[in-house]
Design a protein around this nucleic acid. Structure first.
Lengths: 147, 147
DNA sequence: TATACTTATTATAACAATTATAAATTAATA
DNA sequence: TATTAATTTATAATTGTTATAATAAGTATA
């Protein structure tokens, strides 16, 4: 699964004339296999041992490259730093109010909502995003135990 | 409409023991009547003439107070600074990719999606948010004219 | 292969939004 | 009025991100 995604992503990059450097390969690979919606700093720290001299700027630069190539989505929530998500198929995010964990929630896209919104506001709609907030099972259990 | 909201909001604050200072009153009033989802800086600049010595920190402090009192929602998008929205009834936001304008889109809450998400992930769901992206009528027209 | 040329990376400085701190002010209470 | 607590102000610090300039690496061409 991961390998297929990685190969596809690299193909996409190659076809748009973007050079595949070792750093880019590693960053992309990490995002795809991490499943944890990492921040730029997460990525930087994770690859520190492999690329001791890599700059934070390189991470940011390449996240932008990936975003512009349509490979990666930037998620901005209330907290300080953005998280990055490899784009596969339709899914939304569940966010735990207590520990901040982000979990994928697969659900068919809300096409009819897009249509209605377009109709009511006159926008040309291109996309939408949704986040669902709550308490994850782990935190729930913890809270019950403590009380 | 605005006056009712403001009065309700002040009541809520009073009942939670929060002092209603002139600055707080003005910030709240501005958010409610602005309809423009202002940033902290927008608010700061708008009230500059009325409170020449008010600090930016005061704006941020009170936005947090309002948020904690459940009066105001913080909206974070890709761009640099957060926008603040007075909480009334269920609505989502349409965002123009071209000019950044935010327009309300009233729609009944997606309760069934919340339920399904809860069922699939084991979360206790408390809320959700959704944004719909596209091009607003004005920018659409502009684009057609230019081309 | 040598040369120029483009692209990417690095190191570092700059920036901008937000938060923390401490002093001054205001309001509430005894 | 004196005391205490809450709020505002001014300013410094922090942090995520972007910009800049120099260096390095890769690509194409003579």
């Amino acid at each position: 699964m991961t390998e297929v995604h990685l190969r596809d992503a690299l193909d996409t990059l190659k076809s748009t004339g973007v050079r595949i450097t070792p750093q880019r390969h590693a960053i992309l690979e990490f995002i795809i296999q991490s499943m944890s919606h990492p921040t730029a700093d997460d990525i930087y720290k994770a690859l520190e041992s492999k690329f001791p001299s890599m700059s934070v700027a390189t991470v940011y630069n390449n996240l932008r490259v990936f975003r512009e190539a349509g490979l990666v989505k930037e998620l901005t929530y209330g907290d300080s730093s953005s998280r990055f998500d490899f784009i596969t198929n339709d899914h939304y995010h569940m966010i735990c109010n207590s520990c901040g964990k982000i979990v994928d929630f697969h659900y068919p896209g809300l096409d009819e909502v897009e249509h209605l919104a377009s109709h009511l506001t006159g926008f040309d709609v291109s996309s939408h995003r949704m986040e669902i907030y709550g308490t994850c099972p782990t935190c729930k259990e913890h809270a019950t135990k403590v009380q």
